[in-house]
Amino acid sequence: MWWLILGIAIGVIGWWLVAWTRAKKIAVKWYEWLLAVIAVGFALLALQNYYAFLREMEPHAANVMLTLLGVPALVFAAIAIGLAWWQNNKAAKKPAKS
């Protein structure tokens, strides 16, 4: 049940994010979306393994898997957000053609 709720939440947040970037006229390249999806994938794997290992009564293994999968999630998310921010910032600074 929790996974269903999480799935719906991810779907809603994803839809809102797409709509928000368009409303704010933030240009997001396809590969930045891909990086974001990979980040979400790693985050979900980190969560699943963390809680499942806790259920297996293996807290050490839970922490290891959270690190092994959580760090890539953060790295991919940071690259996706950073790239989008950098490109939009660059575009904003560019003088408009007369």
Partner: peptide, 19 residues
């Protein structure tokens, strides 16, 4: 976007329930 949302809602639980 509505289609994407539907796909997301459908696939996300399967993706997170990796086993």
């Amino acid at each position: 976007d509505l289609g994407l949302l539907g796909a997301g809602i459908t696939l996300a639980p399967a993706a997170v329930s990796g086993a």
